[in-house]
């Protein structure tokens, strides 16, 4: 996936990067800053450009991460993924109209998740909390780090993810929930092949589908519970064997 993204950004040799090599990592970071991110002016990139003096580079990189407000990641692969994602976002924002033809019917309308979640959060807090307040954002970010929720540029979406984790794993209701019994089935072995030769597409698709099925199941369970509740008022099944007649 990372390689695909680098290729899309125009990296000259996306297939030949050894991500574990610190030096190659450094040069990739530099390339991203030079080509797309451009956080610093050109003359400000000198420390990062000096790949011969790695200790100095590390120093500069640390500052760079803070300046980009990159969330604390552990591995350099995670950091690089975030940087590439960030670069792609900037590239897109430079000229969104250029990509207009891609949304539409063929690709499925991209939902304005940001606005939706903002509305949702606002109604929950009843407008009493400014969700764009710096402290609020910082609070969400800290919570996310504690619960190991992956970073997202929109803190409200991240808050939604946190809600889900609290709901599923930490809340009192989930504590008392019985463990699901049954035979587990490897989810990548079903009849429903998405893209047999492209794991980068197949894997996330399956995960998304499972999430969709899970929320559908919740909805259906709610529906069933409602029906049962109504049945307690209306149901009165009767049979009258006198009416019955077995034919010839």
């Amino acid at each position: 996936m990372l390689k695909l993204k680098l290729e899309a950004l125009g990296h000259p040799t996306p297939n030949n990067i050894a991500f574990s090599n610190r030096k190659e990592f450094a040069s990739t970071v530099l390339w991203l800053e030079d080509q797309t991110i451009r956080l610093y002016p050109i003359e400000g990139r000198d420390t990062m450009r000096n790949l011969e003096d790695m200790p100095a580079w590390e120093e500069g990189y640390k500052q760079y991460c803070t300046d980009l407000s990159m969330p604390p990641f552990e591995t350099q692969l995670e950091q690089l993924t975030w940087l590439v994602g960030n670069a792609m976002r900037l590239e897109f924002l430079d000229n969104p109209s250029q990509y207009e033809s891609i949304n539409g019917v063929t690709e499925g309308q991209p939902k304005n998740n940001g606005a939706q979640s903002q509305e949702k959060v606002q109604t929950i807090f009843d407008g009493k909390i400014n969700v764009h307040d710096k402290d609020f954002i910082a609070g969400v970010r800290t919570l996310a780090t504690k619960l190991q929720v992956p970073h997202h540029p929109n803190h409200l979406l991240q808050l939604q993810a946190i809600t889900r984790i609290v709901h599923e794993r930490i809340g009192p209701a989930s504590m008392n929930r019985k463990a699901i019994t049954g035979t587990p089935f490897p989810f990548d072995k079903g009849n429903d092949v998405v893209a047999a030769n492209d794991p980068a597409l197949d894997y996330p698709m399956r995960i998304l589908r499972l999430l969709q099925i899970q929320s559908l199941r919740q909805l259906q369970t709610h529906i069933n519970e409602t029906i049962v509740a109504v049945q307690s008022l209306t149901a009165n099944p009767k049979t009258d064997t006198k009416l019955g007649k077995v034919g010839r």
């Binding site: 049945q231 149901a235 049979t239 009258d240």
Partner: peptide, 27 residues
Amino acid sequence: SKGVIPMNARDLEEALEMGMDWSLREG
């Protein structure tokens, strides 16, 4: 053959419109 579930004409009208929802409502 004839059924053992007591029904009148009105029940039938409702059942025709509601399908299994009728069976659910009646239990």
